[in-house]
């Protein structure tokens, strides 16, 4: 039989037990304090384990942008391309782009309605700034002065359902 746990083991046991209990509580969003705690979870220590459920990800997120030229003409929409690699079961460096775009698209979709009264507040939203910064650094027409971006959602290959525009920015100076 093992003897009594030493101090380090006892502290570790308590900490891991609390960590596990908080994880369980967060899965079912049982208490308000767990949600409050999650807001300070900058290191993603409280996991969410509901993979692709209850609502599976059956949509794709697309990032499009278009330029306004110095003469006032507006160019056609262009999509920032995403091509999944052939060996992605072993090696998939592109997944961060695709997942980031999807997360940012969802964030803008949820936060934009709150800023409808005062759209300028959107200009200090980190997700919005990340997309605007990224779009600004994409290739542009040589005489482009402004750029505008849109986040759109499509419903899978061959779907008859039309794409939704979930967010449309104003024109911003490049």
């Amino acid at each position: 039989m093992l003897g009594r746990p030493d101090g380090t083991e006892a502290v570790a046991a308590v900490l891991f037990a609390v960590w596990l209990l908080v994880t369980i509580a967060y899965q079912f969003r049982l208490k308000g304090w767990v949600l409050a705690l999650k807001r300070y979870d900058d290191f993603a220590m409280i996991p969410a384990w509901t993979f692709f459920a209850p609502n599976p990800a059956t949509t794709d997120t697309h990032l499009l942008y278009r330029d306004k030229l110095a003469c006032g003409d507006v160019m056609r929409w262009r999509e920032v391309p995403f091509h999944p690699g052939p060996l992605r079961s072993l090696w998939n460096p592109r997944k961060r782009f695709q997942k980031g775009l999807s997360d940012l698209g969802n964030e803008l979709r949820h936060s934009a309605p709150y800023h409808r009264e005062d759209p300028d507040f959107m200009l200090i939203d980190t997700g919005f700034l990340a997309l605007l910064n990224f779009v600004t650094c994409q290739p542009h027409a040589s005489s482009a002065v402004y750029t505008q971006f849109a986040v759109a959602r499509s419903y899978g290959r061959g779907s008859a359902r039309a794409c939704d525009v979930v967010f449309l920015s104003r024109f911003h100076r490049i």
């Binding site: 899965q27 384990w49 509901t50 993979f51 692709f52 459920a53 209850p54 609502n55 599976p56 990800a57 059956t58 949509t59 794709d60 997120t61 995403f82 999944p84 695709q98 999807s102 499509s154 899978g156 290959r157 061959g158 779907s159």
Partner: peptide, 29 residues
């Protein structure tokens, strides 16, 4: 267990449409 229970309460998963829907996307398809 969390993932399983979340799927069990989802009509989309129970109907069998979830996996086909996910695999029909460009990102996870």
């Amino acid at each position: 267990l969390t993932s399983g229970v979340a799927k069990a309460i989802s009509p989309v998963w129970r109907s069998g449409k979830a996996i086909a829907g996910i695999l029909n996307t460009h990102a996870y398809g």
